Computed example of a mutant assay.
Amino acid sequence: MSAVDKNDLSTAYPVATGVFGLSGRTALVTGAGGGVGAAVAEAYAAAGAAVLVTDIDKDAAATVSQRITARGGVAEPFALDVCDGDSARDAAAAAARLGNGTLNIVVNNAGVIAPAMFPKMDEARFRKVLDTHLMGSYHCSHAALDHLPDDGTGRIINVTSAAGLTGTIGQANYGAAKAAIIGLTKSLARELAKQSVTVNAVAPLAATAMTENIRSNEKLAAKTLARIPLARWAFPEEIAPTFVFLASDAAGYITGQILPVDGGTVI
């Protein structure tokens, strides 16, 4: 990624203008204490949005929020457990207050992994992943309904994965959760179109803590890279602009779609 210095966020996130700008809008990003979530929060702020940076790790959320405000952006941290409906409702309300009563963009990014081959996959491990990914997306999307506008700027952007599109080995819980999010995305897109709210999903593949178990295993890393036509992992900063696009006016006529940003892994 020679054109972008991942340590210099001013080059990673040039301020978007025109149909790609988010000035005057407010976003709630879950799992934004690191990885793709942090990159999305920072990209939204660079595009002009006020961002509620949420994570179950309050300190991580605060660090990202401080990074945004230090560069002149508008952000606040919020400790959010997406598995808790009350916590999700509090977060949606806090985001709306940040946006003078309106929450325009919800990004359901929070996730966990609990890998195991299926014979050793106990119910607790299976439910933990479904509760975070699927129920977390449900809680935060549902909580946002009272705050989303009907003026065409309302966006719900979910995060799925190639695992939800093609299946995976050793993470049936993760694959099931991500496949369910695809169904949730398409169903909400049909329902919320009446309120001019678009609902889409991104299926990213990036070098983050979520993929560390693969990238640190020489055999798994080699197999994964062999399936990526571009033959490399993306930085989270390369994934974030897709979320800016889907949140912007440029994507106002796109809904119910699943967009892989994975170097061509799913073609």
Rank of each mutant, 00 (worst) to 15 (best):
K6N: 09
N7A: 12
D8Q: 12
D8S: 14
S10K: 04
V15A: 09
G18H: 00
V19W: 01
F20P: 10
F20V: 14
G21D: 04
G24E: 13
R25S: 00
T26E: 03
L28P: 02
V29I: 13
T30N: 11
G31S: 08
G31W: 06
G33Y: 00
G34I: 06
G34E: 10
G34D: 12
G35M: 12
G35Q: 12
G37C: 13
A38P: 01
A39S: 13
V40F: 06
A43R: 11
Y44Q: 12
Y44F: 15
A45C: 05
V51F: 13
L52D: 04
V53C: 02
T54N: 01
D57I: 05
D57K: 05
K58M: 00
D59I: 00
A61Q: 01
Q66C: 07
R67C: 06
T69Q: 05
T69I: 04
T69S: 01
A70E: 13
G72H: 07
V74C: 12
F78R: 07
A79T: 15
D81W: 08
C83M: 14
D86P: 09
D86R: 14
A88K: 02
D90W: 02
A93E: 15
A94M: 08
A95D: 12
A96E: 05
R97I: 08
L98E: 01
N100W: 02
N100Q: 06
N104Y: 06
N104G: 08
I105M: 15
V106P: 00
V106Q: 04
V107M: 04
N108Y: 13
N109R: 06
N109C: 03
A110M: 11
G111L: 14
V112Q: 05
I113W: 03
P115M: 02
M117T: 08
M117E: 14
M117L: 14
F118M: 10
K120L: 15
M121W: 12
